[in-house]
Structures are given as C-alpha cells and as structure tokens.
Amino acid sequence: MSTAPRFVEPAVMDRPPKAHRFDVYSPKLGRQATLFGRDALDLWTTLEGSPQVLSFCERPMKIPGASRHRCFDFWVRRADGEELLVLLRESERKEANPKSRHEILAKLDGTTLDGALVRCLDPAHMADHAIALANWGSIIRDLSAFERFVPQALCKDLVAAIEQPKSIRQLQEDFAPCDSTTIRIGIYLLLHRGQATCRQIATHVLGPGHIIEAP
C-alpha cells in the first residue's frame, strides 16, 4: 500500500475575513505552511508535536455543501487511519437554526468522507492545553532553525542515554564538551520523532529540569 500523503498542499488559499495570517515552517512536512487564525495555528502546533501524526495538510479540500470558501482545516494521517478536521467558528458553536451552516457540519461530524473520519473540534478546548502548546511552539521554532546542525550520531547516543530517565541538564552535562544547544536540539528531535517522552511538557514551562525518558 502506498505511504505517499493523499494531500501535499492546500487546495484553498482564501483568507477568512479578519483572520490573521501565520507563515510557519513545518519540520514534519519539510515545507512552509500558511495558516489563517490563531485557532489554526494552535491546532497545527498540536499536530506537529504529536508523534502519532504521520502526515497532515492544511486546508486540503472544501466542505461539501458548505459555502464556497469553507474548507476542512486539516487532513491528518495516523497509523490507524485518516481524519478531516474542522475548527468550529463561534457562530457554529451556538445553537443553530434549521438553515444554519452548522447543520451541515453536524451531519458530517463522526462520518467518513473518502475514507477519512470527519471530526468537528471546538477551539475553546485548546485553552486547556496552553502550556503544552507554548512548549511545543518553542520546540518547533528551535527545530525549524537548528535541526540541520544536529548529527544523527548524537541522536542515536541520546536514545541510548535515556534508557534511564534524565533531565535535559543532566544530558547536557553527560555529553559535554559537545555544545549544550546542540544537545538540547537533539533532545527536541527525539521528542518530535516519538523516540523520547517528557511528561512535564504538558504541565510546566519548558526548562533544563524537564525529565526525558524512553517512550
């Protein structure tokens, strides 16, 4: 079976009214991505930071039956299947009348379209993960800028080193005199690839005391 992504670039580039534009680099995709609105940026951060997400694409296709500018926010591929994600707008989160566009999304939510599960997401729920979003935002920015400077041999050695949980600071000390920044970015690479985990990412602002362990 082919492992090539079904969607590799956005099909819709129209910016929603008053939506801020974010141009970001995705280490997972190896390309630039353009996102419209803070909610889309936060969802992208979640997808980029999840090792279970193998691939994704922003605005892959229009929503059948919706207005001509309304599209799915992301297509996502995981090991167990594909998803089409929609971020509900404020008007769509309110009680809808029978002629509301929300009815279209309500009927699609939980169904499959071209083999992909459709999921409608309430952006308000992402506020519960503010610390994780901020931490992954920092990790992704550092990977975007410095990933290319990290030797793969270092990543391999780091994988072996975290068979026993260690803090970022301990790993930097253990691998001295190697540059501490390079070691930190190497640790971020392991987290991004799912070769390491850190429970504190969801609860504490990222720092040298965070404990890194094998998944």
Rank of each mutant, 00 (worst) to 15 (best):
M126I: 04
C71I: 06
D128M: 01
A130L: 03
F72P: 01
A106M: 14
K62P: 05
G115C: 10
E92G: 10
D128P: 01
R78D: 10
L133R: 14
I63Q: 11
D128F: 02
R70T: 07
K94L: 15
A79M: 13
C71R: 06
C57V: 12
E48K: 00
G81Y: 04
P60D: 04
A96L: 04
S50R: 13
S55E: 13
L133D: 05
F56R: 01
I131K: 05
A132N: 09
R77I: 05
D109W: 02
I63L: 14
E103V: 04
R93K: 12
S100T: 03
E90P: 06
T112A: 11
A134K: 02
A124Q: 15
A116S: 04
H125L: 14
W75V: 00
E48R: 01
S55M: 07
E103P: 00
T112P: 08
V76A: 06
G65Y: 11
S100V: 03
R89F: 01
R59A: 14
L87F: 02
E92M: 14
L113R: 08
R119T: 15
R89W: 02
T111Y: 02
E95R: 13
V76W: 11
L54P: 05
E83G: 04
D122E: 07
A96V: 09
A132E: 15
P60V: 09
L117A: 06
E83F: 14
T112D: 14
R59F: 10
F74D: 02
A127F: 08
S50F: 13
D80P: 11
L88D: 04
F74Y: 15
P123A: 13
T111N: 01
L88I: 01
R77F: 02
P123Y: 09
D122G: 08
D73M: 00
D73G: 00
M61D: 10
A134H: 02
F74Q: 09
F72K: 01
Q52T: 10
D122Y: 10
M126T: 05
A79D: 14
S100K: 12
C71F: 06
R70H: 11
D128A: 04
R101E: 10
E58M: 03
P51T: 06
L105V: 04
L85G: 00
F74M: 11
G81A: 05
K99N: 12
P123R: 08
S55L: 03
I131M: 05
L117P: 06
R101S: 11
I104L: 10
H102Y: 05
D128I: 00
L54N: 09
N97I: 07
K99F: 13
D122F: 11
A134E: 08
I131V: 10
A106V: 14
W75D: 02
A79H: 12
S50C: 15
M61Y: 03
L87Y: 01
F56M: 06
V118K: 11
R101A: 11
A96K: 07
Q52G: 15
H69Q: 09
E58I: 06
G115M: 09
